[in-house]
Design a binder for these strands. Structure first.
Length: 361
DNA sequence: TCTGGGGTCCTAGGACCC
DNA sequence: TCTGGGGTCCTAGGACCC
């Protein structure tokens, strides 16, 4: 029996929340993101703004030139999280198998429930209705036998869309789409595929394995599976965080000095706070630097024991900084990440580490 | 035109161990 | 003096996603 997988996606989420909370913004081009002066980018654009070509990830300076009448709003993530929790609760009222992908997006496995709702169409309308009832927001829904096709389907008729792909028609559904529609095909892979003569998903589906391998290596084989609409990956309700990090782009490039170093210290504290909150500790500290010319490097070092201590993370990152910085270097971004995460109570980990040290001595 | 911040996963080389 | 193979961990960079 085929699965019933749903991809649900709130439309222009951050911008819609701002329009919801401030009626004066309704019907107007709204852009959520950092200021153009601080080198911000667009995090969300209302559909009114999109008509001017404003898109996510566009530099804010460019967005404001495209649409001078746009109203820029700084993001309020606490508020978006609050609404996100309500929406996820609506999803979980339908099925316990919910995999949130971000604040505004989730996969649901409703294989067990779909019949009791009277089929996928009705289930989709139910979800959209419940979300609208609880939050006044519109939801786009894609329903298919797997995550890949459900995701592509939900993108199809935004905003406020509902697309159901019948089992068995996956390959035909995907065939006319551009290769970029496939999960994992970004600008680079798209360029490589286009250069090799592949423009549509259908062309990938009917290519030989050797052709694809020549273009993309081992990834090519995997890509062909996708192009046929094959995807067995399960909806996963749990997932373990693998890293915690924070980074800042400065309004103006910074040379090494007190300002850069105090910013590094601030970031280290923010990472430490979030590590502690998630009751985990990191064994590897990564320093990230972006030069004025946008070239980006990372330097990492692994410590003997995991830590969530701000001072330790900061001093480790500072010593990495000492190792790379040269006179005259100017930076636009600095960041700190912790990886090699270990879950558990800090005290118990400390005790355990102490025992080991004693054993060795 | 001038490029955010939060992540995940993959590759590739080298060190090190058995 | 020349030389294995497998496994694991570490580091650096890059593609990609939302």
């Amino acid at each position: 029996m085929p699965r019933t997988i749903i991809h649900a996606d709130l439309d222009a989420f951050y911008a819609s929340v701002e329009q919801l909370d401030n009626p004066e913004l309704r019907g107007k081009p709204v852009v959520v993101g950092g200021s153009p002066e601080s080198r911000g980018v667009v995090m969300a654009a209302s559909y009114e703004a999109r008509r001017f070509g404003v898109r996510s990830a566009l530099p804010m300076s460019r967005a404001m030139r495209l649409c001078p009448r746009a109203i820029r709003v700084p993001p309020r993530f606490d508020r978006y999280s609050e609404i996100s929790r309500e929406v996820m609760a609506v999803f979980r009222a339908v099925t316990p198998l919910v995999e949130p992908m971000s604040l505004d997006e989730a996969f649901l496995d409703a294989t067990e429930q779909v019949a009791s709702y009277g089929g996928p169409e009705r289930l989709g309308r139910h979800l959209k209705g419940e979300v609208r009832k609880h939050t006044s927001l519109t939801l786009s829904v894609g329903i298919a036998a797997n995550k890949l096709v459900a995701k592509v389907a939900s993108d199809m008729r935004k905003p406020d869309g509902l697309v159901v792909v019948q089992p068995g028609t996956e390959a035909a559904f995907l065939a006319p789409l551009k290769v970029r529609a496939l999960w994992g095909v970004g600008p680079k892979a798209e360029a490589v595929l286009n250069a090799a003569g592949f423009h549509t998903v259908g062309q990938i589906a009917s290519a030989t394995a050797a052709q694809l391998e020549a273009a993309l290596g081992t990834r090519g084989v995997f890509l062909q599976q996708m192009a046929h609409g094959i995807d067995d990956s399960p909806v996963q309700t749990e997932h373990e965080r693998k890293s915690v990090g924070a980074e800042t782009t400065f309004a103006r490039d910074l040379q090494d000095g007190p300002e850069l170093r105090s910013e590094l210290d601030r970031i280290a504290h923010s990472v430490a706070r979030r590590l502690a909150k998630s009751e985990s500790m990191g064994r590897t500290v990564v320093l990230k630097l972006r030069y004025a010319n946008f070239h980006t490097i990372t330097r990492q070092t692994s410590r003997p024991q995991p830590t969530d201590d701000a001072a330790e993370i900061a001093s480790t990152a500072l010593s990495l900084l000492d190792g790379v910085v040269n006179d005259g270097d100017r930076f636009r971004l600095i960041g700190v990440h912790c990886t090699n995460l270990v879950k558990g109570e800090p005290d118990q980990l400390g005790l355990w580490a102490g025992d080991r040290t004693r054993e060795r001595a």
